[in-house]
Each structure stands twice: as C-alpha cells, then as structure tokens.
Simulated scan of single mutants.
Amino acid sequence: MQLDLALAEDVLGCQIPIQPVVHGIGMEDLAPLLKHLRDQRRAADPLMPLAEVDPLKFDFNGIQEEAREDLLRGMRQSHLVEAFYAGTLRAVEHDEVAQGFRVYYEQVRRDFSDPEDVL
C-alpha cells in the first residue's frame, strides 16, 4: 500500500518534518517501512540491552540529557527496521533509505543551529 505524506502522518499520529522527496527517496518509498514499524512497535522489548553509544557523538551533535534518553529509547525499535529490510527483495534499499536519512539530517543540521530544533 502506498501512503502519501498526509496519510503517513495520520497513521503515525504526528507530523513528519520532511520534504515530499528527500534526495531521491520519497514518502512512497518509506511507506511500507513506516507501516511495518507501526504494526510491529509492540514487539520491542523495553528491557533489552542496547549497544553503547559513544558519548562523543551526542556531544558533537549538541544533544543534551533528555534528548539523549529519547534517542536511546528509540533505539529499542531499531531491530524492527532491520527485520523489515531482511524480508525485502531489494538488498540495497536499506542502505538507500539510511543514506537518505543521513543526508537529510546533515541538511537539517546546516539549516538549524539549535540541536533541539534539529531533533
């Protein structure tokens, strides 16, 4: 099922602060992943151990304590992304989507100086 931006935001219950197409990856490309994440969100184990994140990464990006905790909590869902892409036929799609998010994050960091605004 293809989702446009408005429908994806409705499904997730929040605004998605991206342009309709980000460096060749559009909402239609992310829709199956977003639906999978929504459907599988309950599968995340709130007590699962998480990989250590180098504090220097947080410091470099100016991310303070509350935002750090939010990001670490969000990591509990990251295995769902891996599971979704493990079941797809396009082996490079995972890397393309990850690259799209990385490029978008770099763009947002250039446009906003306050780390809270970036997040």
Rank of each mutant, 00 (worst) to 15 (best):
A67S: 11
H23F: 13
L5M: 15
K35W: 13
P115M: 01
P55T: 03
D45A: 01
V97Q: 10
D4H: 11
L72Y: 00
F60R: 08
V108K: 09
V97E: 08
P20N: 05
D111C: 09
Q15A: 14
D114W: 00
E106Y: 01
A98E: 07
A31Y: 13
V21D: 14
G87I: 01
L5I: 10
L50S: 05
V108A: 08
I63D: 03
Q40K: 12
F84Q: 06
G24D: 05
A43H: 09
E116Q: 13
F60I: 09
D117F: 01
Y105H: 07
K57D: 10
G13R: 10
I63Q: 03
V22M: 11
H94D: 02
K35S: 15
Q40C: 06
P49I: 01
M1C: 10
P49M: 04
H36S: 15
Y104S: 08
K35D: 11
P32S: 12
V22N: 09
E9L: 11
L119E: 04
A51M: 04
R41A: 15
D111L: 14
G62W: 07
V103L: 14
P20H: 01
E9R: 12
D114A: 13
A51L: 11
F60A: 13
K35C: 14
F58E: 05
D117R: 13
D117Y: 04
F60P: 00
M48G: 04
Q19I: 00
E82L: 14
Q64N: 05
G62M: 07
L80W: 06
I16G: 03
I16W: 12
T88W: 07
P49D: 10
L33K: 12
F84Y: 15
Q2W: 00
L119N: 05
H94S: 04
Q40T: 11
D114T: 02
Q107W: 00
E82N: 06
P17D: 09
Q15T: 14
L80F: 02
A51V: 08
E93L: 14
Q2K: 08
I16N: 05
P55K: 04
E93N: 07
I25T: 14
H79W: 02
L5A: 12
K57P: 00
G74P: 06
R41W: 13
D95M: 10
V118R: 13
E82K: 06
Q15W: 01
R110P: 00
E52Q: 10
Q77I: 05
F101G: 04
V97I: 15
E96W: 04
R41P: 01
D45W: 02
Y105I: 02
G24F: 02
F58A: 06
L34Q: 11
A98D: 09
M75W: 00
L3C: 08
F60Q: 09
M27H: 10
H94K: 13
D59K: 09
V11R: 15
L56M: 10
V22P: 00
P20C: 03
Q107P: 00
R109W: 02
V103P: 00
L30N: 09
V103M: 04
G24V: 01
H23Q: 03
F101Y: 12
M27N: 07
R102S: 10
D95R: 12
Y85E: 02
L119F: 07
E52W: 01
M27V: 15
H36G: 06
V53W: 03
Y85A: 01
G100P: 08
E106K: 08
L56E: 12
V81Q: 11
V97F: 11
L56R: 14
A6S: 13
E52D: 08
L71A: 01
E65V: 11
E9F: 10
G13H: 07
